[in-house]
Design a protein around this nucleic acid. Structure first.
Lengths: 224, 224
DNA sequence: TTAAATATTTAACAGCGTTAAAATCTTGAG
DNA sequence: CTCAAGATTTTAACGCTGTTAAATATTTAA
């Protein structure tokens, strides 16, 4: 019994283990960012992280498990950005949300692109979504729409669910196109905002509508 | 010289060759539809089509070439649907376009899903797009918007390019979500139309706007 | 009919993810 | 301090993949 407890609390051992685990994952991320997920070979990774292949299996698991770890971290960071958003200024909220995400992606553009590709390639986002990330992501613009309706910014002839969902779709489309390399992060911003402003304009009060149209005319039509 | 000409016109030989080539591709499509592109193994395919693996290499080429053939055919069929569209009734044009595509996909749903996945996984759509398919696809809603502007259906405060591009984006998003299995073909229709109607409503004249709002309220909010 | 061109198959290669078993290192009790 | 027990890493292999050179069989043209 004591043995078991001792083994669990054991510091030097388990700490080193975690250290190596993180080092392996870091190298994996760098390789994925530079060459894409398909180019991540376990033997290369092992050499890069200065371990042997079975060690990777011991500390992390196979390639699917590795992917899971990476996706989990991606989802965590996305959730952080999402949680820090506030709806005080509804009109600005949609825009700052996009801006925050763009800033996050800019921190390591190659990596985030690769992670997103890996994510929806192996259907791991679906699983994550069932664990709540998707529902909460779409809930954000829905809530924003509700607030906008209560302040009269939106007329309410389109349900907040319908519009919020579509706005989230605009973000996803822009993200997808950025991930696929159709345009850069600036293009992501422009494309996402174009879609969002167009959606909002469908149900905006006259003043808000003209502000939106104004903003739209100053947004470039993304080239591809 | 005669040899060369004779060899090219040679019928029995080249006809049989083409026959086998098509048989192999048909089997490939069926496997892809049933099990996904990653599950397509050359040895399985060879056994299924009653040839040996190097024959596949001789008649078609490696896996990338096979994918190219399949994508090319997909693009051709999409183009057919696209070319048969007419803009006489602009208000209905957007909807019939979506309906036509949904019908096409319904002919062999599993296959089209797999083909789309394979398509944007290997960046083959980008190449196809540079060969014109994307430009023409996005041109269609842009033209429709222009007509709608000239008939007064749209006010014109949003440029036809901007709106048409966004409408095409709505279609792509819905298609993507259908491909990823988030919803079925009915969901694809509903989702695409929701996005399109919302976009149009942003710049619609009052009567058209209220018709759009009406249609929107009768469209279900897609579940995921 | 026979020589040449063409197509198919046999048989192998290299690279991948994965894993059992041997070797090494770390830990804690005596 | 020693040394057996346990945890960890490595050696060495397996099976599967896409791919291809060389041998074999088939078809065509003279």
């Amino acid at each position: 019994m004591e043995k078991l407890a001792a083994a669990k609390n054991d510091s030097a051992r388990v700490v080193n283990k975690e250290k190596r685990r993180r080092r392996i994952l870091d190298h994996a991320r760098r390789i994925i960012a530079k060459k894409g997920f398909d180019a991540l070979k376990l033997r290369d990774l092992a050499a890069s992280a200065d371990v042997t292949v079975p060690t990777i299996y011991n500390l992390i698991g196979g390639k699917p498990e590795m992917l899971r770890f990476i996706i989990e971290e991606l989802v965590e960071r996305l959730q952080e950005v999402q949680n820090q958003s506030d709806l005080k200024d509804v009109e600005a909220a949609f825009e700052t949300q996009i801006e925050d995400l763009a800033k996050l992606f800019a921190e390591d553009e190659d990596y985030y692109r690769a992670a997103f590709i890996a994510g929806d390639r192996s259907g791991l986002f679906e699983q994550s979504s069932s664990s709540g990330i998707f529902a909460r992501s779409v809930q954000l613009p829905v809530e924003a729409c509700k607030v906008a309706q209560s302040t009269g910014l939106l007329a309410g002839s389109v349900s907040a669910e319908q519009m919020g969902r579509q706005i989230y779709g605009c973000y996803r489309l822009a993200r997808q196109d950025w991930v696929n390399g159709y345009f850069d992060l600036q293009g992501f911003r422009d494309q996402a905002l174009t879609g969002i402003f167009l959606c909002l304009a469908a149900d905006a009060n006259p003043e808000f509508h003209s502000r939106l149209i104004n903003r739209l005319s100053s947004l470039p039509v993304a080239m591809r």
